[in-house]
Structure formats: structure tokens, C-alpha cells
Design a protein around this nucleic acid. Structure first.
Lengths: 190, 190
DNA sequence: GGGTGCATGTAATGGGTTACATGATTCT
DNA sequence: AGAATCATGTAACCCATTACATGCACCC
């Protein structure tokens, strides 16, 4: 049995479960849907969709319109829906995430504290901005998708982003204070 | 100018800044150092060290002992230290992290709420355990490395883990309540 | 005429893990 | 005898991004 190391084909199934789509459509909608915690490039999407069709998990229809390129629109088959449900049940594969900020911070004693401080500052700004974006998305969803049964699940993923970014903002502020202290000792103490 | 897409060689430089080491040593010490936010496999380490030596960033010494295999111990050169400092100053490259849990949760409406609940439950357990581990490490560091000037930086990376896991625990608990509500409506309501 | 958007796709390249290969010593 | 630990390393494979290639239509 071939074990499926990658979640990519299943991510495509999930996106197709939201409605028939072309590869181009999928790419366009990612920022508005799973973009905050998942990404796919054309190099994955187009061959991936082809493979789904070859495996009988999706069907491909050609849409022709004069004055614009052909579109290949994929729809989930019953088999595809079933495969999606099977994958959703499988335990989540936890990976060791690589965090370059922490890597640099860990070796922070090898350079001036101000270097670390700038990294943390940038991280703070990043997460403050994310919090704004999350709030805007939540507002939009409450208005526009109020009756969609999928709404609660979308809000849960948003909520994780909010919890995480809020924690990061708090950590950044504490860490900046700590770094300031180190810098003062660095300059004043010796 | 060739831009360095990968932080791996610099991670090796950072580890070597802690003292001369063999590839084997590096692999062994990762869980005790940067393991919570970075990983490297032998397939990266051994060729990586060779490249560092070839680039004049590290020197290789052979240690022979009767009754055990040869060890190739690498030490940073002045040039290597300088390169580490240069890399530390470069802005952190933010990547879009892939979170499989969120991906499954986002499509949670395609299956029974209990499926999502189990995933969240596992995530809760994972982060509660991480909190224990972090606390144990912090204790050990305070005792054993109290006078090391690098200690504050190590504690900062630990602290991020603590903030993050604490936020995840909170989110999991809230989300489990929400999922319970959905399940009740699911069963009772219709 | 030139940029932008629609729309498809592939090839090159990069980055990384895993499994394998080797071989001595020490512990059970 | 067999397993675990020390220690090095490579080859096969997997996954993913990026750059490139094509081509039409529309707007400035």
C-alpha cells in the first residue's frame, strides 16, 4: 500500500467540495479561503487536478467561450467526496515547523542585541497586521455567509489565527523589553 | 548574486558556534537545542558540513581512537563566524506555514463534527504536553546554565513556545465547546 | 504598441527526508 | 548470537516553487 505523504491532493478535493472549479479558479480563491494556513502553486494544482481526474475522483469539463481561453472545470465525483471524507478522518500528521526567527534568536548572543530586536519588532508588526486582517475577515463572514452551515468551521480556523497572533504580540512585547534590558547592560555595564 | 534560499547551512554555522562538533554530534544535540523549532537530517548535515569546509567557513579535524570509528570534528573559522553574523542580520524570511489541522477543520462540514473534535482533542493533548516539556526545560536551564550569557536568548525561544502552546490550549478548549454545540444541534435539531 | 488579465501547462531547480550501506564495539 | 550504539555517508525519492512558454482579448 502506497502511503500518501502529501496532503495536497486532498486539499484539492476539499476545495472542489466547495463547487466545480478550474485550476485557475482554485489558485485565485486560495487567498480568500485557506490562504492563511495553506498554499498551493500552479505547479501542484494543474498536474494534481489531472491526477484526480485520472483516479476517478473528479471529472473534467471543457468550457468554451469565444473571446477567451478554454477553461477546464473539475467537479468532485461521489468517489472523490468519499476519499475526502476518508482523509478528513485520518489523524493529522504533525510536522516539526521550521521557524527562522527562533533560529536566529537562539543564536542571538553571537551578535548585537539590536539585531534580534529588529527581528522581533518586524514580527510584532506582522502579527498586529494579521490581527487586523483576521478581524476584517470575521466581520465579512458574519455578514455575507451568516446562513452557511460551514461558517462555524471557517470561524474556528480564523479564531486559531487570532489566538496565535495575539499570543505572538504579547510575546514580542515581553521579548522586546527583555532585549532592551540586555542592551542596556551591554552598553552600560561594560 | 546567488541568493541563499535555505537557512540550513547557516543553522549549521550557528550550531558550530556552540563548539566544535561532528555531524553525529550535531544530530544528537538538536533535540536538546533547536529541536522545537528546527530540524536537520543526516542527508543535510553531512554534505552541508563538507560544503562549509570547502567554502572555508569551517575546518575539519580527524579524531582517531582505537576501538571506535573515526570522528570528523568541524570547527568554525573566523570567516565562518563572520558569515553567521551576516546571516543573523538579514531579515527573517517569512514562509506560509502549512497547518494540516486547520485544513481539515476548514472542510469540517463535509464530515461528522466528531471527526473534527477528535483532531482538536489530539491537538489539545499535544500542546498540554508541550507546556510540560517547556516548563521542565526552563527549570533545567535556570539551574544548569544560570551564568551563560546565551541563557536569555534560549529562554526567549522557549517563551515563544509557551505563549504559543498556551494560546493553542485556550483555542482548543473554546473550539471543543463550539463543536459540542454543533454536534448537539446536529443530533437533536434534525 | 504595450501592459494587464485570463487561462493553461511544463521543466528546471531546489530542498529535504528516508532508506540503505558499511563496519566496529559493547551489552544482553 | 543478536541487538544497540557509535559514526559516516550516499542514492533514491518526494514534494514544492519558480520561471518559462503560449496565446487571446481588452484597455490606454
Amino acid at each position: 500500500m502506497k502511503r500518501d505523504g502529501s496532503a495536497t491532493p486532498n486539499a484539492l478535493l476539499g476545495l472542489l467540495s466547495m463547487g466545480p472549479m478550474s485550476g485557475y479558479d482554485i489558485r485565485q480563491m486560495i487567498p480568500q479561503s485557506i490562504g492563511h494556513f495553506w498554499s498551493e502553486s500552479y505547479g501542484q494544482i494543474y498536474p494534481g487536478l489531472k491526477r484526480l481526474a485520472a483516479a476517478g475522483l473528479a471529472t473534467k469539463k471543457t468550457e468554451r467561450k469565444q473571446g477567451s481561453p478554454d477553461r477546464y472545470v473539475y467537479s468532485l465525483t461521489a468517489k472523490g467526496r468519499e476519499q475526502l471524507r476518508v482523509w478528513l478522518k485520518l489523524p493529522v500528521a504533525e510536522e516539526v515547523p521550521r521557524n527562522e526567527l527562533l533560529l536566529k534568536l537562539f543564536f542571538g548572543a553571537q551578535t548585537s542585541p539590536s539585531v534580534s530586536r529588529e527581528h522581533v519588532r518586524a514580527y510584532l508588526a506582522l502579527h498586529q497586521q494579521k490581527l487586523h486582517v483576521y478581524r476584517a475577515i470575521a466581520k465579512r463572514l458574519w455578514k455575507e455567509e451568516a446562513n452557511d452551515p460551514r461558517l462555524p468551521f471557517w470561524l474556528m480556523t480564523l479564531s486559531m489565527g487570532q489566538h496565535c497572533s495575539a499570543a505572538m504580540v504579547k510575546w514580542c512585547k515581553e521579548t522586546l523589553k527583555e532585549l532592551d534590558g540586555i542592551e542596556r547592560r551591554h552598553k552600560g555595564g561594560k
